[in-house]
Simulated scan of single mutants.
Amino acid sequence: MRSTTPMPGNPWPHDMIITVDDRPHTVLELLWMREAHGLRPVGDALPPLLVDRPAPAARPVDEETRERWSAAWSRVWDEVVAHAAVEPDQAVLDRLLDETLSPDERAALLRRLVGPTARDEYGDDVLDDAAYRVWERRGSEAHLATQLTTLADSPEHREVTTLAHAWRRGLEKVVTVPCRGTYVRQIGPRALLVTDEVRRDPASYRAALDSFGPASSPSPSTV
């Protein structure tokens, strides 16, 4: 989101660019896995449960595997959201256009672009699950339905004054997750992770944006 030219009376700074990722696929995959497989991760920065609770995985695992997966989940979560905070490397995108790349070189570049995923820790088969496909399709359809509003009606334009203050403190990206209640976490020096509910609610979104700061590493706020 940006305004390309200065406009008198327009509260959006013409050079402010804010990216909103409201469908972060690698993050969603990990959230689905936690609930569909009944994982019990521990940690003080874990997100709330999903609003749209998935059905149990069609390919369940045994208790020993579930415990091992649970123990790794919070570490993988931190790795995945840390990558979600970073904008794609333009140099990598440009390099992918090179038709002389070998398959291995292309795969390595794509890996850098996508970042850590659930598959890295849990195997390629973990998302080859009928229950995941049903849940993912339902989420995609719901997300598409929310994209019918105009840009002027977006939460970022609605809260542009507070957003601009956060941008001047370094904010460049907002990542949202479809989890319950309030969850606000600064991920890196330039990004904020919030629930869809927080972003939709004016007072909650203003509070989340106000919490952003270059020197702050606030504990996640959850309700």
Results as ranks from 00 to 15, higher is better:
H83W: 03
I187D: 05
E159K: 01
P24C: 12
E141S: 10
E79H: 03
Y132A: 06
V61F: 10
P214T: 00
V92P: 00
T195M: 00
D52M: 08
A164P: 02
A55Y: 01
V61P: 07
D22E: 10
D201T: 14
Y183R: 11
E87N: 13
M7H: 14
R199W: 15
T4K: 05
T19S: 15
D78C: 04
R168C: 02
A58Q: 14
A152M: 11
A55T: 04
R59E: 15
I17L: 15
L151P: 03
S70W: 12
Y132S: 05
P178E: 07
T176C: 11
E156S: 06
W135Q: 00
H37D: 07
S221F: 03
P155K: 14
L192F: 04
R40L: 11
Q186D: 04
T65K: 11
S211P: 02
R95W: 12
L209G: 02
Y132H: 10
S70E: 06
R119Q: 07
R112E: 11
Q147I: 01
V174L: 02
P60D: 12
E63P: 02
L151R: 12
P214A: 00
R40W: 08
T150L: 15
M1E: 12
T117E: 13
R75M: 08
L109H: 07
S219L: 06
T150F: 15
Q90I: 10
S154F: 13
L39V: 07
A208Y: 02
Y122E: 03
E121D: 12
T162W: 04
R158H: 11
D52R: 14
A203E: 13
A45F: 04
R111W: 13
L192H: 06
L151C: 04
W73V: 09
E197M: 10
T162M: 05
L46R: 00
R133D: 11
S154W: 12
V27C: 06
P24W: 14
L193E: 07
E121G: 04
R34S: 07
S154G: 14
R200P: 03
H143F: 15
D124W: 09
A145S: 09
A191T: 05
M1L: 14
A166Q: 01
Y122G: 00
T182N: 00
A145Y: 06
P218K: 06
T176K: 09
D120V: 09
P24M: 13
R185N: 02
A58S: 15
L144I: 05
P11G: 01
R40N: 11
E172H: 07
A152V: 13
R138Q: 15
A207R: 04
L151M: 10
C179R: 05
A131C: 13
E87K: 10
P54F: 06
I17P: 02
